[in-house]
């Protein structure tokens, strides 16, 4: 099932299909290795519901929901 990363629930995994957005934010996502084909697991949401903690390529990132919405995923 395809959906954006901000729609994931904790523990859910998937593969990146497309990275949207623009400018600095998009570039940062790409630089972090979030490119089509990358596998990402949503670890948890912060206590106030935002940002999200994700893990990919062996490291963990904090990413805001607004930015995660740019990442289209194929959920497993």
């Amino acid at each position: 099932m395809n959906k954006a990363l901000d729609q994931f629930i904790p523990g859910e995994q998937g593969t990146v299909l497309k990275v949207g957005g623009q400018g600095a934010i998009r570039r940062r996502l790409l630089d972090m290795g979030i490119i089509p084909g990358t596998r990402i697991c949503l670890v948890k949401t912060a206590p106030m519901g935002d940002p999200l903690e994700i893990t990919l390529r062996g490291f963990n990132l904090s990413i805001r929901k607004d930015d995660a919405a740019y990442i289209d995923m194929a959920a497993e």
């Binding site: 400018g23 600095a24 934010i25 940062r28 996502l29 972090m32 940002p51 903690e53 490291f59 963990n60 990132l61 904090s62 990413i63 805001r64 930015d67």
Partner: peptide, 11 residues
């Protein structure tokens, strides 16, 4: 201005 990305590592 354009918001700076808040995509930080949790080391």
């Amino acid at each position: 201005g354009e918001p700076a990305p808040f995509i930080i590592e949790l080391p």
